[in-house]
């Protein structure tokens, strides 16, 4: 690489100081750690004008396997936390997101957004995260129910997380990512996310945010690389319980077919407009219902 210049969007060294900047190696996020891809591969991430920005890890199917293993391991403890505690941790993530505003804006600008648009998207992403965090201890009241039954039982249904969710993140590098990750984990699921292929850097920065919050390792696992290569392994994996195909443009039918192997819950690709009101659909898609018949009067 030539010496960093003032036009270099990710350079850390101030121009004209003669200092060599410390360049960042963008890695994966698996089980709370930042490993390189098992395959040793990486790919070049360019900015909107085609200039080099960074190298990102190109994950392989074995990274998918490892990530699913990490997510499965983290599921028990995360799903057993009280919803209130999960909510607190997600608020903490929002605090850390806020603290990295400038970095996210820079990365979104490198991905081709205007300054004001980038700033707006970061605001929306933080707000979206807080919005989902608030749902943590309210979801049970909205989705659960006390059921009238003809017998001496107190009968009630509560939502339970489904398990490990595979997420193919949309191209919207920050707002879209936040809008698919937060609803998956707020209810107690863990997830394996394949980040946006053209602009993976905000996803890795989000991983750094998650790693410095109180989120337990393995609850969110982020892979960067080729969607077409990774998605089929995630869709067919027998230890993945649900699949969010938000970032799939074509070939979704094959993935849905593979997902049927163990009856995964699948969210199909949507409109792609992430600024609209999200609603609760993405959270409730990854819930199962547990009904308890509790004897009364005995």
């Amino acid at each position: 690489m030539s010496e960093p210049t003032s036009t270099d969007p990710i350079s850390t060294a101030p121009p004209g100081t003669g200092r060599i900047g410390v360049r960042k190696t963008y890695k994966l996020f698996i089980g709370g750690a930042f490993p390189r891809s098992e395959s040793g591969r990486s790919y070049v991430v360019n900015d909107a004008k085609g200039r080099f920005v960074a190298n990102a890890s190109q994950a392989s199917r074995k990274d998918v396997r490892d990530a699913v293993g990490a997510a499965r391991k983290a599921f028990g403890a995360w799903s057993e936390r009280t919803p209130y505690n999960r909510g607190q941790i997600l608020y903490r993530v929002a605090e850390m997101l806020e603290g990295r505003r400038a970095q996210f804006v820079d990365e979104l600008r490198a991905a081709g957004q205007a300054k004001s648009a980038a700033s707006t998207e970061v605001d929306q992403a933080v707000d979206r995260w807080v919005w989902y965090a608030g749902w943590a201890d309210k979801l049970g009241a909205v989705v659960g129910s006390a059921n009238p039954v003809a017998g001496p039982f107190f009968n009630f249904s509560t939502p339970e997380p489904t398990g490990v969710v595979g997420v193919i993140a949309p191209d919207s590098p920050l707002l879209g990512l936040v809008s698919v990750v937060a609803p998956a984990i707020v209810s107690g699921n863990t997830c394996v996310v394949v980040a946006a292929e053209p602009a993976p850097l905000p996803a890795i920065t989000l991983a750094e945010v998650l790693a410095t919050s109180d989120l337990p390792g393995g609850v969110v696992n982020l892979l960067t690389g080729r969607r077409a290569e990774l998605a089929p392994w995630l869709a067919s994996h027998m230890d993945v319980d649900a699949l969010d195909l938000a970032g799939i443009v074509s070939g979704g039918a094959e993935l849905e077919e593979a997902a049927a192997g163990n009856l995964k819950r699948v969210i199909r690709p949507g409109s792609g407009d992430w600024s609209e009101e999200p609603g609760t659909a993405r959270m409730t898609a990854f819930l199962e219902t547990k009904t308890v018949w509790h004897p009364v009067g005995v």
């Binding site: 067919s236 027998m238 230890d239």
Partner: peptide, 9 residues
């Protein structure tokens, strides 16, 4: 089968 298996099975 060519697909990753899980302990649930």
């Amino acid at each position: 089968t060519g697909v990753y298996s899980g302990p649930d099975h």
